[in-house]
Design a protein around this nucleic acid. Sequence first.
DNA 1: AATGAATGAGAGTTCATTCAT
DNA 2: TATGAATGAACTCTCATTCAT
Lengths: 202, 202, 202, 202
Amino acid sequence: MQNPESPKYQQQKQAAIRAAAAVFARKGFHGASTTDIASEMGIKQGSLYYYFKSKEEALAEVCLYGIRDYVQRMEEIARDDAPFEVRLLATVRSHLSSYREKNEALKVHNDERLYLPEIKRIKLKQLGSHYRELLEGIFEQGVRDGALREDLDCHFAAQSVIGICNAWGELIVRDPRLDVEQVITKVNDLLLRGLAPMGAKA
Amino acid sequence: MQNPESPKYQQQKQAAIRAAAAVFARKGFHGASTTDIASEMGIKQGSLYYYFKSKEEALAEVCLYGIRDYVQRMEEIARDDAPFEVRLLATVRSHLSSYREKNEALKVHNDERLYLPEIKRIKLKQLGSHYRELLEGIFEQGVRDGALREDLDCHFAAQSVIGICNAWGELIVRDPRLDVEQVITKVNDLLLRGLAPMGAKA
Amino acid sequence: MQNPESPKYQQQKQAAIRAAAAVFARKGFHGASTTDIASEMGIKQGSLYYYFKSKEEALAEVCLYGIRDYVQRMEEIARDDAPFEVRLLATVRSHLSSYREKNEALKVHNDERLYLPEIKRIKLKQLGSHYRELLEGIFEQGVRDGALREDLDCHFAAQSVIGICNAWGELIVRDPRLDVEQVITKVNDLLLRGLAPMGAKA
Amino acid sequence: MQNPESPKYQQQKQAAIRAAAAVFARKGFHGASTTDIASEMGIKQGSLYYYFKSKEEALAEVCLYGIRDYVQRMEEIARDDAPFEVRLLATVRSHLSSYREKNEALKVHNDERLYLPEIKRIKLKQLGSHYRELLEGIFEQGVRDGALREDLDCHFAAQSVIGICNAWGELIVRDPRLDVEQVITKVNDLLLRGLAPMGAKA
DNA sequence: AATGAATGAGAGTTCATTCAT
DNA sequence: TATGAATGAACTCTCATTCAT
């Protein structure tokens, strides 16, 4: 809207995005009202429109906010030259701790982004694809290094990692008592070694 | 509401549930209107109330419908006395083919059931817990049989299986070209053996 | 909306259009609220949307209603093979009595139609142009017959007739005590003979 | 509000009135927003209230501005001792060139003044009546001088002149290519001599 | 002299729900 | 068994207005 440099404005806008994320995560996009969001951040409903042009735009901004540094962290992991096991663990940790540490924006991105019109989803799609490609690259490297099976379907593997992390992410969000670090370890272990005992036949 | 035994009524009621499932899956509970549901089944909006007392009840019935025979199939699998590998595969197959074969009700159960008031969710919770417990039982049996690692956290494992199946289920629903049988095989394999090559150190 | 054949629906829709016309005439399009319109026709605000998709559509329908038989009457006058003086009088009479007899829709058309988006104004434009062309045709015939000056600018004349009639129309609407028949006579006379005495030099 | 004498203030106030006139003319009183007006004059919305106590007051000032020197010019014409034909032409010219030369305030006065509360319209009414009376006086003088028909209804004539001028005024505002001087001539001629050929019977 | 920020009232619109028929 | 008609509450969004700075 106005002077987007004003620090006060920037700060409030951030608060608005976080409030929207919290409410969307709790009630879903259509189930959440702008009154909910406004009162979550302690202003009146009409004032919300000082920060968002529309409820839909609020969703767009939350989704972007949710996925942005999630992708960025993956870029760092991909850039890093560590062995596969380290990078997988980093990936799982980054993904799962997003759900606990930061806020609910990632969950909102996963669950509600489809309610955005195609055109507002382009950027999100790019980021999502980018994430998956980076992850696939890590898997391909893992195959070359012998850290993964030769016949691995890297696309399938990447989707599965994302899927299982999102599933546990939801559980983490819903149950605040869950020990995230422990979940991270177990997910990582499951992904690497599966459930069967070592040396079991295929 | 009268004559709820009449076969015509039963038949239309089923159609109503399926229509609601389709629409809820597509637009979410709050995003779907009763007009959407009615027109999906080819009747007028007001007529819906002949089959559902309220929109919320429609959701409840869809969720129940979605999870009921999903649980039932799990009961059959659990009752069966097959080796663990067979039962895991059966579980994954049952779960994933639900998404393709039957209808969208399971997805609706997963994504929208939280919008039901606590009281209408009791039955669903029971069924869900029952499912998880059956699955955990299968895992425990697998541990005893030596088909799974001794130190396996069976609760974690069950949740993970459910999570990864739901994740792939969403992908299956969204992309009709996916080869479900292939996904089943790969998911099953990933769960059993993980991504690392055989004989890799822990 | 629904079965547009239902006589009840048609009847109520007419009432809605007339109510909207009255309110728009009184308060202008932007100054009128849908609550005003609804209460003018004795229903609740939300129910208005059973008859109009939007307030804007209500305006469109009022305008169309206002101009439609106004044009139609002009077509009859144009078709008729009467001498010019008769047809001019008929035109003025038709135009001015519209304002008194029928309703406020013509005034709304004149004053508010510009608030419609271009696309909803096409039909109105056609009708308006048609009206003016018919009137110009009458003037051209009058020139040929010698009832009008040879050098008359028929386009100018038509616009002027329309303009002066609309101006008196507004006065008629605003002041119910005005004797319309007398106004008709005087306007007709002014148009034909002007203000100057007979035989005055140009 | 302080220092209303400061020349800068006076200048900006004039700009505000002109901006409001332009916007009201384009969108109507209710259709125009204070943001529109502010941005038309290049300031921010809140700053408008430095010049107007309220939007309604802005309308009042625009109307007054629009009609004031319109009346004043009429006073000059009335004071002048010219023959009737000269004064009529001067009247028409003054009225129509207002629409082109000055600004949109006169149109706003004509179309929107009724949205002012009775009390704020008193002054306008006085001015309008004064104008009409002056014009009627001119007509009465014309009758006495033999420049007009003996039986002329001067009130009717004055209203008609005003009406036809306003009608053409709207056309002038809407179509910038119209040759105003030509319209003036033709309107004047129509008023004086009517449409019929010289010497036609009544 | 002007603005950024906020507000509260009211707008148009949608929609779950009811009910006579 | 189904529908047309209506309703009232909730919702998103706009906007005139205020005021500290």
